[in-house]
Design a protein around this nucleic acid. Structure first.
Lengths: 136, 136
DNA sequence: AGTAAAATAGTACTTTAGTATGAGCCTCCT
DNA sequence: AGGAGGCTCATACTAAAGTACTATTTTACT
C-alpha cells in the first residue's frame, strides 16, 4: 500500500513537472505543441497499460464459476450433488457415508444414479465430466 | 482483424484532429495548455486501460502450469505419470492398458506405485492430490 | 560390460465400486 | 387424498480396483 501511494505521488509530480516544462517550451517556442502532446499521449498510454497489467497480476482469479443451470439440466438432486462433491475430493463410499451420516448403501444408490445422469461408467469419469461441465 | 484496423484508424484520426484542435486553441488563447494536456493524458490513460482489458479478455488463459519439479520430487517415472494422466481422464485400468499397449497387471502395478508416491488411498484421491499439486 | 532403475507381467487375494431390485418414509403439489 | 420425486436402506450379485509378492526384460548410464 505504501508503495502504491509513493508511486502515485511520483506520478503526479512527474505530471506537474511535464506540464510546466511543456508550457515553458511552448511559450519559448523551442518545441512544437504536437510533439509534447504526442509524448504525453504515449506516456499515458503506457501508464494505462502498466496499471492494468499490475491489476491483472494482483488478481489471479482463474475461478471457474459453477454452472448451476447445468446441474438442474442434468436433474441432479441436492443429495446427489453433495455426494458428487465428496467423490471429487477422493473419498470412498464408506467415508462419504460417515461424513453425511447415512449408510453406505445409500451412497451407493446415489452414486449409481449419478453415473447414469452424468453418463459416466466410473466415479473417476464422473469427476472428469463434472469438471468439464463446470459443475464442481 | 478488419475491426481492429478500423478502430485503430479511427483512433489515429481522432488523435490528429485533437492535435489540430489543441494547436488552434492554444494559439487563439481560448484554453490553457494545461487543460488540453490533462485531457489528452486522461484520454490516453483510458485508451491504455481499454486496450489491455480487451487483450485480457481475448486471452482467456487461466491455464495452470504443470509443476514438473514436483513430479520429479515425488519420484514419478515417465510411465507412471502417463498412467496418472489417463486415470484423471476417467479411464479404467483395462482401458489404460489397451491405450498404452500393455497388460492390465502392468497398469495395476503402476497405479499401486502411484498411490504410494502420491500418498493416496484411491485413484480418485490421487486425482485430487495431483490437481492440488498442479502436476496434471 | 556391469548395474541400477524402470517397465513389464503374472498369480492369488482382499477390498471397493457399481448394478439391480424392492421397499419404507417424507415432502410437496394438485 | 393420491401421486411423484427424493432420500433412505437392505440384499445379493458382478465387476473393478488395489495389494503383495515374485520374476523377467529393457533402458540408461558409468
Amino acid at each position: 500500500m505504501k508503495k502504491t501511494i509513493f508511486v502515485f505521488g511520483m506520478l503526479i509530480l512527474a505530471l506537474l513537472l511535464l506540464f510546466q516544462l511543456s508550457k515553458y517550451a511552448v511559450i519559448s517556442g523551442d518545441f512544437q505543441v504536437e510533439y509534447i502532446m504526442a509524448i504525453i499521449a504515449v506516456i499515458f498510454l503506457l501508464i494505462g497499460l502498466f496499471i492494468n497489467k499490475r491489476a491483472q497480476k494482483s488478481s489471479p482469479a482463474p475461478k471457474q464459476e459453477i454452472d448451476f443451470k447445468k446441474i438442474e439440466e442434468l436433474g441432479l438432486s441436492k443429495r446427489e450433488y453433495e455426494v458428487l462433491k465428496e467423490i471429487a475430493l477422493g473419498l470412498s463410499n464408506q467415508e462419504i457415508a460417515e461424513k453425511l451420516f447415512v449408510s453406505e448403501s445409500t451412497i451407493k444408490t446415489h452414486v449409481s444414479n449419478l453415473l447414469v445422469k452424468l453418463d459416466a461408467k466410473r466415479r473417476t469419469q464422473a469427476i472428469q465430466v463434472s469438471k468439464s461441465l463446470n459443475i464442481i
